[in-house]
C-alpha cells in the first residue's frame, strides 16, 4: 500500500507545469539570495580620503623622518628625494616604530630594514611604499591607495 503508483509519481514529477513552477521558485530563491549577499557590501566607505596633503617640500629637509600618526605612515626625505613607507605591519596590522636599523613591530616581533624589507619575524612581506605627488601649489601629496616599487623616490625639482 505504501508503494502504490510509483509510475504516477514519476509522471507528475516530470510534468511541465510542476517543473516550471519549481524551476522559477529555485531561480527566484537564487536571485533573492544574491541580493541578500550584495546588501552586505555598501557602495562607499566612511573613511577619509586615502590621498592627503602632507605639506610643502621645504618642511622636509634632507634627512627628515616624520611619522604621521593619524595616517599611519612615515615620510622620509634624503638626497634622492621624498618617499613614504607605511607604518602598518604586514603581519597582522600593528603599528611599527622606527629604530636605528629599520622598523620594529611590537606585537609579534616582525623586523624590517630601512627599505621596509622583512629581516625577521613572521611578516609575510615588506612594508609597502606609497606614491608621492606634487600639487600645482607645490604641496606634497601622499596617495596611500597606490603602492610603488621600493626605492621609488619623488624627486623635487
Amino acid at each position: 500500500m505504501s508503494d502504490k503508483n510509483p509510475e504516477k509519481g514519476e509522471v507528475s514529477r516530470r510534468d511541465f507545469l510542476g517543473l516550471a513552477a519549481i524551476g522559477t521558485a529555485v531561480l527566484s530563491a537564487l536571485g533573492v539570495l544574491a541580493g541578500v549577499l550584495r546588501i552586505f557590501k555598501p557602495d562607499v566607505h566612511f573613511e577619509e580620503s586615502k590621498k592627503f596633503k602632507i605639506g610643502k617640500p621645504e618642511q622636509f629637509p634632507v634627512g627628515t623622518v616624520k611619522k604621521f600618526d593619524d595616517k599611519k605612515l612615515f615620510v622620509f626625505s634624503d638626497e634622492d628625494g621624498f618617499y613614504a613607507i607605511t607604518a602598518v605591519c604586514q603581519h597582522l596590522g600593528c603599528i611599527v616604530y622606527k629604530t636605528d636599523w629599520g622598523f620594529q613591530c611590537p606585537c609579534h616581533g616582525s623586523k624590517y630594514d630601512q627599505m621596509g624589507n622583512v629581516i625577521g619575524g613572521p611578516a609575510p612581506r615588506g612594508l609597502p611604499w606609497f606614491k608621492i605627488e606634487q600639487l600645482v601649489d607645490g604641496s606634497l601629496v601622499v596617495d596611500a591607495s597606490k603602492e610603488v616599487p621600493k626605492g621609488t623616490k619623488y624627486i623635487y625639482v
Partner: peptide, 18 residues
C-alpha cells in the same frame, strides 16, 4: 493533473518575483 491551482500560483508568483 493534481495541484494545478497551487502549481500555477507558484509559477506565476515565481515569474512576478523574478
Amino acid at each position: 493533473m493534481y495541484s494545478r491551482f497551487y502549481l500555477s500560483v507558484l509559477l506565476i508568483s515565481g515569474l512576478v518575483l523574478i
